[in-house]
Amino acid sequence: MNIFRFAGDMTHLISILVLLLKIYATKSCSGISLKTQELYAIVFVARYLDLFTDFISVYNTVMKLVFIGCSLAIVWCMRLHRVVRRTYNKDVDTFRHYFLVLGCFLLALFVHEKFTFQEVLWAFSIYLEAVAILPQLVLLQRSGNVDNLTVQYVFFLGAYRAFYILNWIYRYLTEPHFGRWIASVAGLVQTALYADFFYYYFISWKNNAKLQLPA
């Protein structure tokens, strides 16, 4: 465990807690893409299959349970909670995310570390996480300026992946046999997707204005 990875996990946790806070405090999920949340739930379930077979550390197990629990709670909230579900605006959340699921699964069938059930699903979850934010970014662009908590949610998600890239560089430099190309390449793609969002976030923060994304 290195500081970059720990910081990455913490910002990831913060992003999920910010989202839960927003939904719980405002009893509203306006501006949030249900499709992105569903993709994240799939990512965590597909990746943490080893939860009961491989024990790595208490920290690892606890964090996996928290991530799976929170992501399912958010999807449940947005789909079934009698107050929150009415604030979900499905005609702006129109990204066809099932193509992302299919594309990532096909890619995982061809590019993986070992052709085993667990490894293919692991690679699938890595690819899917890289693109899971797309429905949310499309929704943000479509709805123009958005509320701060949603913006902070995306910001912390981007920061988490950026810390993980520093973590992979650090591990590559310090651990002889470290070669995790699938996660590193997918992580780079994911962070690049956030880059334009970060740019507009920084501009709006500098001008102390609300975030305006180009339509």
């Binding site: 996990d9 491989d54 790595i56 550390s57 690892n60 996996k64 991530f67 570390e113 973590n167 996660a183």
Partner: peptide, 10 residues
């Protein structure tokens, strides 16, 4: 103690 497995990251 942390077991170094191939997928020791979250």
């Amino acid at each position: 103690l942390e077991k170094i497995s191939n997928h020791d990251e979250l």
